Computed example of a mutant assay.
Amino acid sequence: MQMRTGRHTVPVPQGYRIGTWEVDAPLASGTFTTVYAAHRTHGTPQTAALKFWPTHTRTPHRPDPLQGLIRREVELLRHLRSPRLIRLYDTLTAHDPRHPQLDGATALVLERADSCLHTTTTPPTSPDAILTQICEGLTHLHDAGWIHGDLKPANILVMTDGTVRLADFNTAARLEGTHAYAPPFTSRDHTPPEQLWPEMDERGTRVQPSVDTWAFGVLAHTLLTGDHPLPGTTTAARCDAATRYARETRQLQLSPALPPTWQKIIRDCLARTPADRPDTRTLLHHVRHASHHR
């Protein structure tokens, strides 16, 4: 999520109490949610991040579209525990007619992080170590039958001990065989070309685990070099470059400063054909090897 200046998707006053938690300062805001720091005087942990979803938008005969996104994140975090995934402590609902804008809002009580890769100015450890931890998280997700679907720096949290964890699973999708169905709310800078204008039905967009592999390749190149592998001055320009690359009218522009091992890893992740991208277990093996030999 990216911080917004001056306004928040779900405004919650400082000092507001929900369950045993008291809301402190806002941390970040996204399209649907706002995350706040929070504390409590009794129980452990004593600090957390509260991810507030707005009140129900359900109308007669129509389901609330946000409830499906909340269910995805809660289902995944309740069933999967890993040092590379952010931890869910609890799920709360505000019952407060005095604050109509919050009455019925959902708050996910999450493990508190220091920052995210999008906002941190000094990464806590080497890019190789960060990428290894990200790949470990992706491997755990894929092995458990889930696709993240929106891997990007804003969704990678930096913890107090310097490790990183994957977060924001409201667009995650559970595999049904070789594919899954995900909502179309993703960062286009990290979306593979075959998903930029996907076909959709009532279940969402049909995706494969290779969407995370592509996003990892973009992330790795950006983290190691500071540049996107399909550069452009705007997101639209980068999407156009990705589309032309998929049509074989443009080549990747990988940095010559990359070591050969990382050149190969990133090129494999960004293969034009999804089936040519490595699975995350294979990818993790290569990433660990590259990290140990830099």
Rank of each mutant, 00 (worst) to 15 (best):
T5P: 09
G6V: 04
P13C: 09
G15F: 03
Y16K: 02
W21Y: 06
V23C: 02
P26C: 08
G30T: 04
T31E: 15
T33G: 02
T34F: 06
V35D: 03
R40G: 07
R40N: 06
T41N: 12
A48Q: 02
A48Y: 01
L50Q: 04
K51I: 02
T55P: 07
R58E: 14
R62Y: 14
D64N: 07
L66N: 05
L69N: 02
I70G: 00
I70P: 02
E73P: 10
L76T: 05
L76G: 08
H79M: 14
L80C: 10
R81D: 15
S82I: 05
R84K: 08
R87G: 09
D90N: 11
R98C: 13
H99D: 13
P100E: 04
Q101V: 10
D103W: 09
L110Q: 08
L110G: 01
E111Y: 12
D114A: 15
H118R: 13
T119S: 10
P127C: 00
A129P: 02
A129C: 05
I130N: 01
Q133R: 07
Q133P: 08
G137D: 08
H140N: 08
H142D: 07
D143W: 10
I147M: 08
K152Y: 10
A154R: 03
N155L: 10
L157M: 11
T163V: 04
L166R: 01
H179T: 15
P183H: 10
P183R: 05
P184D: 14
P184K: 03
F185D: 11
F185P: 03
S187R: 07
S187Q: 13
R188I: 12
H190M: 08
P193D: 09
E194N: 09
Q195G: 11
G204H: 06
R206M: 11
V207M: 10
F216P: 01
G217V: 00
G217N: 00
V218P: 07
T222A: 09
L224G: 00
T225A: 01
D227L: 12
P229Q: 01
G232A: 01
R238G: 02
R238K: 08
A241K: 04
R244G: 11
R244M: 13
Y245R: 05
A246V: 07
R250Y: 14
Q253V: 12
S255D: 14
P256Y: 10
P256T: 12
A257G: 12
P260M: 03
T261V: 10
I266T: 02
I266L: 07
R267Y: 14
P274N: 05
A275T: 12
P278M: 07
D279K: 06
H292K: 13
H293V: 12
